[in-house]
């Protein structure tokens, strides 16, 4: 046979299902079930009647029960959250719109400011650049909670309280994004720039027509992580908004849980499912960017 003898002695040609491997798979499968069970419970409960929730019936549908999946829980949850009479729409739609507006405006803001700054740090020759970069890096050490109180007071002073400005602008400068993009930009060969300059392109032209298209993975990563963080944010919107119509989904969900949803668990679960779904889909579609970004930057958490 072609396989050298010593190789054969140390490792079998292909791994067999030894008892140890069976144990590993068993642990991983049990772990995965533990990981998924809360999601499964959420999805199942959101489709139950109030009666089956009370009686703790795990599977009230065919073939074990006679109920039909209560898809109506979803519109019912939306109705129960309340009505915004000034906008003539359900409050729930305001929450969704607010979350989408806040998350996408924050993403756009972070990307714009960070791409410009990162480019200067990576490629341009500007006096004081290194000092400014160190200054920016130092802000990583400022924990968010330390500046929470003064930032809330600033929102009052600026008259931004209860507006979209308070929910987006303070998050548009991101040290992580600048650092991450700078690292990425520095990897792009300099020859490309020299070639572009010969063709008569300035810095901005070069940045937008060459650097940005080449840095798509890095920009996607930053965009996704910022979106998730904004979507998840709860403490800040709770502090700087007052009106129900200015709430984001996370705040709306918590308020609903304190009220109507506290007793109607199936409606609360329907609400939670609507909050969770977009992020899970986004994650599953773009996993590669996510995992890489989180490993390299440690953002979120």
């Amino acid at each position: 046979m072609a396989i050298p003898l010593d190789r054969q002695a140390f490792e079998p040609a292909r791994p067999r299902m030894s008892p140890a491997r069976v144990l590993i798979y068993a642990i991983l499968i049990v772990g995965s079930i533990g990981s998924l069970l809360p999601f499964i419970y959420m999805a199942l409960t959101s489709l139950k009647t109030y009666g089956s929730v009370i009686n703790d019936t795990f599977w009230p549908w065919a073939p074990f029960g006679t109920e039909l999946p209560q898809l109506g829980n979803y519109p019912e949850a939306i109705r129960q959250v309340g009505y915004d009479s000034s906008w003539h729409t359900f409050l729930f739609f305001r929450y969704i719109a607010n979350s989408l507006i806040v998350a996408s405006v924050t993403v756009a803001g972070v990307l714009l400011t960070s791409v410009l700054a990162a480019y200067v740090f990576a490629r341009m020759n500007v006096p004081g650049k290194n000092f400014l970069f160190l200054l920016i890096l130092a802000t990583i050490m400022v924990p968010n909670d330390l500046v929470l109180v003064p930032k809330v007071v600033m929102m009052f002073n600026l008259h931004w309280y209860n507006t979209y400005l308070a929910l987006t602008v303070p998050f548009m400068g991101s040290v992580f994004a600048i650092f991450f993009l700078r690292q990425f930009f520095m990897q792009i060969p300099k020859d490309l720039y020299e070639a572009a300059v010969i063709d008569g392109a300035g810095h901005l032209r070069y940045l937008f027509s060459i650097m940005i298209p080449l840095s798509k993975p890095a920009i996607m990563t930053i965009g996704l992580l910022t979106f998730i963080a904004a979507w998840d944010d709860f403490k800040w919107p709770l502090l700087v908004t007052r009106d129900a119509s200015m709430r984001v989904l996370a705040v709306g969900l918590q308020q609903f849980m304190q009220g109507e949803g506290g007793t109607n668990t199936q409606l609360l679960m329907a609400f939670a499912a609507i909050v969770v779904l977009p992020v899970l889909l986004l994650f599953i579609l773009t996993q590669k960017y996510f995992t890489e970004g989180i490993v390299t930057t440690g953002i979120k958490g």
Binding site: T113, V120, V147, V153
Partner: peptide, 24 residues
């Protein structure tokens, strides 16, 4: 051009990260 490109990010970080430490 370089300073103009740095300005938005620097302004945001100074106003919402540095200044609040002292204000706090």
């Amino acid at each position: 051009l370089g300073y103009a490109m740095l300005a938005p990010a620097l302004l945001l970080l100074v106003v919402f990260e540095f200044y609040p430490i002292f204000y706090g």
